[in-house]
Design a protein around this nucleic acid. Sequence first.
DNA 1: ATATTAACTTACTAATAGGTAAGTGTCAAA
DNA 2: TTTGACACTTACCTATTAGTAAGTTAATAT
Lengths: 188, 188
Amino acid sequence: MENRKKQIIDLAIKLVQQKGYVGFSYDDISKQLGVTKASIHYHFEKKEDLGVAITERIAKSFLQNFLLIKKDASVSVEEKLKKFIQVQAERFACTEICPISSLQTDFNSLPDVVQKKIEEVSRLELSIMKDLIAEAQTKGILNDTDDIHSVAVTILSSIKGALLYRRVLGDDILTGVISQINLILRKS
Amino acid sequence: MENRKKQIIDLAIKLVQQKGYVGFSYDDISKQLGVTKASIHYHFEKKEDLGVAITERIAKSFLQNFLLIKKDASVSVEEKLKKFIQVQAERFACTEICPISSLQTDFNSLPDVVQKKIEEVSRLELSIMKDLIAEAQTKGILNDTDDIHSVAVTILSSIKGALLYRRVLGDDILTGVISQINLILRKS
DNA sequence: ATATTAACTTACTAATAGGTAAGTGTCAAA
DNA sequence: TTTGACACTTACCTATTAGTAAGTTAATAT
């Protein structure tokens, strides 16, 4: 049952979103899966092993998501960018934040291996965002004078930050932020 | 020595920024202050008491910061807004994030009292940002068609999010984001 | 001088954390 | 039919957590 491993990682990511890396325990996982704590340790001996698996799954699903949109020739570059931002922002349920944000917050408490992994994922995220923005710029959607890197960081940051505010305020915070992002992109 | 209480709160805020609410312990505090753990419990019986004190201090220093800038008639509204954003963004050392962001991330693990407090502080933060933006709008700096609420949320979110990326990437991420924010404000 | 208070320390508790060693049941290949 | 791997469980260990009860010390007020 290689399925169990996937089950554990999926649940662990959800728990990271809800309680952070420090906040979730093997006991949480084992109880929710109806097995013993030791059986989780059988699949992931140390917590950092699970931590690495978590970041790898996040990176994988992130890349999949990106390629799906990127390769779709049926929509315009502008729509691709908008759709990616939309998906990025709405991937999570109402009280959930981005698992990457959660791990970035817990960064100092992370094992070295996981720290390196989360750094990698953060750079991957940024480079993907930059790729989409660069494509948009060649098509004239974006101002040539705009610094691609700054735009990419600002878009990702504002989405991630908005998810934090949504968690505690509950209000519909994302639509306003997304419309502001669209204004950034259209201001040329 | 009412000083000790302040000392504990200051250190606790720093620890929240570094390791989160779940991640810091009474032992951390006692060791760094050179006293016993029980003595910290003497000043703040339960961890949630310290949690409340933390949020109250954050709110207080936030308001102070705001009033200092707000009441200063020597600078223009536009400069006030810019300065406030600058101060907001650069208040923290290189690997530190906003303590409010940290508590928002740990929100689900927070005691009820602290949850309510952090919700209050979040709203306070937003209303202060909106106040400054509204003032800028009446002076014509901002487009009249712009939704003040969305602009306020986007500015705060992008700063907070950028601090997360800076923590793990180390790069100078803030200047780009701040210049993008200034573009949002000037685009009218 | 005595009582009281503030600010501690010592010494503990119960709960939970991550982690491990040794054993159990099941199934498939040899 | 035995071997061996896989996916567990039982039973433990040690460290750390928040939290408490009782005693200590020094200063202050009466």
